[in-house]
Amino acid sequence: MSVKYQNQAAAIVNEQIARLRAVLAEVNSRLAPATSDLRQIARTIDELGVRSGHTGANAIVVRQLKQLQERQHALEVEVNDLHKAARSIEQLIRQTEMSSSTLTEDASQADPWNLALKAQIIQGREDERTRLAREVHDGPAQVLAHVLLGLEHGLTLTEHQNYERLRELLLQLREGSRSGLHEVRRFIADLRPPALDQHELDVALKELCARFDAAGIINVRSEGTRLPRLTPEQEIVVYRITQEALNNVVKHARNAQVAVHYAAVKGQVILLIRDNGPGFEPRAVAARTRGKHWGLASMRERAALVGAQLSVTSAIGHGTEIRVTLPIGELATRV
């Protein structure tokens, strides 16, 4: 008899999933042309910008640029809203499908914590792909588009034998290409921290803090003991959490003093990141963002994947402290 009711419940859930997929298809049908229009406008703005830089901007070009930039902003808002809607619906579909599986799986396979963690991992991967796509578009892709337009203008200058202006253009393109190469290298480094391939974790953390300090936006002081060798996954998580925490300070607490401490204590790696920035009220932020403060959420997800605990303590006017506790057991060794 119970199987009968489970099947009825599963049919209801499947119907709801089908309706959600229909809504998602409608969102995506609007998202595709809006994204295409946004890319076309970005290319047109780049082309006008290059031409105005080479020939001097007149009133008509300035007016065209202004109109295009206003349209670009409106499309960016629309595309971002559609992306958010699509992600929310996709997450709801996945959660509903996971919940539906509890009607047929046994209790051990349908553990709510495991289902929630799976959903977080999937969502985290999707968010990471979206972030990477945005960085490629806003960084290397824009530089390459600018260089391409510059080369096309260079051909025109060659035809007119304007070699003096051509030399100036080539110098500009050389600097732009160097900037693009730097962006690509930074992008690659973000995908896999080369410091972890070259050094032990404690040395990599020290170098990471030194780079943030050298940038001059925040003041970072690091202090710690030699850490045991962890698994590659654990080391990446500790490194990325530190990187994300420092990025958050750069975004929200410029000129702040930051102290980063790390040590191995009684079978655990302890990581503490404290700043004297403006701080925030965690509950208020969670309520305002509905628990989706992506920086903090990303750090918590990373920590959970390797069995670590992450806590955030903050108050307005009293800075922020992030604490990570990672059990290392008997597998950790010193090199």
Rank of each mutant, 00 (worst) to 15 (best):
V147L: 06
I89S: 06
V306A: 00
I218W: 02
G224R: 00
V250P: 04
L230E: 04
T158M: 15
E135L: 06
E168H: 15
P278Q: 08
E244G: 10
A116E: 07
R131S: 13
T231H: 03
T242E: 03
D275V: 05
D37S: 08
L103V: 04
K84V: 14
A210I: 00
W113L: 10
L68G: 01
V61C: 11
H153K: 01
E135M: 07
P33R: 08
E223I: 06
E26A: 15
V27Q: 02
S2Q: 14
R21M: 09
H261N: 14
V23R: 08
D106F: 15
T156K: 07
N14L: 14
V285H: 01
L305E: 11
L31A: 05
I217Q: 04
V27D: 00
G279E: 04
T231R: 03
S52C: 08
A133G: 08
A256Y: 07
R178M: 13
S2A: 13
W113F: 15
V79K: 06
Q234L: 14
G180A: 06
R290A: 09
V23L: 08
V312E: 13
K84A: 14
R185T: 15
V258G: 02
L155K: 01
E183Q: 15
Q72S: 13
V237P: 02
V237H: 05
Q123Y: 09
N14G: 06
L171E: 15
R51P: 01
S179D: 13
Q69C: 10
Q198I: 04
I270W: 08
R211I: 07
P282G: 05
Y262A: 04
V77Q: 13
T44C: 08
H293Y: 12
K292I: 10
I122C: 11
L132G: 01
W294F: 15
G291D: 02
S222V: 04
E105M: 11
G277E: 02
I217R: 05
L31D: 00
A303Q: 03
E223R: 08
V285M: 06
P140D: 09
V237F: 02
L271V: 05
S177I: 12
K4A: 11
Q161W: 06
A303D: 01
R300L: 10
A11L: 11
K118L: 13
A9R: 03
R134W: 10
H146C: 03
L151H: 00
E235P: 01
S99C: 13
D127K: 07
A303E: 02
G307S: 01
R334D: 13
L181K: 08
V136P: 00
Q8E: 15
T102R: 03
V260N: 00
V335C: 12
V61R: 02
N255G: 11
I273L: 07
P140E: 12
I12D: 12
E321A: 04
L227I: 09
R43I: 09
T104F: 12
T104S: 14
H318R: 04
E128N: 13
P140Q: 06
R229E: 15
L326Q: 03
G319T: 00
Y262I: 02
R21E: 14
W294M: 14
P112K: 15
V23S: 07
A215T: 02
